Amino acid sequence: MELLSVNVGRPRPNPWKDLRNTGIDKQPVDGPVAVHAPGPKGTGEVGLAGDRVFDVKNHGGADQAVYAYAREDLDDWAAQLGRPLHGGVFGENLTTAGLDVNGALIGERWRIGSDVVLEVSCPRIPCGTFQGWLERDGWIKQFTRAARPGAYLRVIEPGDLCAGDRIEIVHRPDHDVTVALVFRALTLEPDLLPRLLIADALPQEGKDLARRRSARDHG
């Protein structure tokens, strides 16, 4: 398992939301990139040096410090869309190879290179900026149906990342709640929400939603 590219955003105008800029335009960078745990959501901070988010209500913060997407899934989307997709084009910070990102368990930990440890937190939920960026009508629905959202990660141990770094899974929790399962529960299959309660590392918002659904189902 390998880190193919480390991708950092450059601000660009956002005509798809009521925001001045977006950081979705991520490009591969040469050399090491420092990774750190950001502040809480609302500041615009993320985990990679030189990167940030502008939709501070919905993105950034400790639970969404780093976003990873698999090269294998990008290649499949490239075939479906009929266009090449470079690393970072989905707004991901890390483009991986040989790693089942969507099958990763919530709370699973990855060591990347010699220093950095990241923890799987939650899936990415597509938005209007993502659809506009790809210039494809109906993209949100298409992406949602596929249930290959990629994973947001927390920074457990900071350090430097570089393209070519080895990725090692160093911890897998004792449950079956995957990134793809959480995504399905939060989008098209809300009946799955109570299953998420066993995933201690799920962000609080997801836990609260799962508890409300479970209480409703058993009320």
Rank of each mutant, 00 (worst) to 15 (best):
L161P: 04
T96L: 12
R148M: 08
A78T: 12
L181M: 15
D73E: 09
A147Y: 01
G87A: 13
V101L: 01
P84K: 15
V179W: 10
L181N: 03
V182Q: 08
A147G: 07
R136T: 08
A146P: 07
G82A: 05
V89H: 12
I125W: 08
V116K: 11
I106A: 12
W139V: 02
L153M: 14
N93M: 04
G164K: 14
P84R: 15
I140K: 15
D174F: 06
T144L: 08
A185V: 04
D191R: 13
G150M: 11
E119V: 01
A151D: 04
W139I: 02
D191H: 13
R148Q: 07
H171S: 10
T96P: 01
Y152R: 15
E135V: 09
R145F: 05
V179D: 12
F130I: 05
D100H: 07
A163C: 03
P149G: 14
P126T: 02
R124M: 05
C162W: 13
R124K: 01
R136Y: 01
P158N: 14
G88W: 07
S114E: 10
R172E: 10
A70K: 06
L118N: 03
L85D: 05
F143S: 02
F90C: 12
V177A: 00
F183D: 03
L134K: 07
I156D: 08
N102F: 09
D137K: 10
A180M: 02
G132W: 06
Y69H: 11
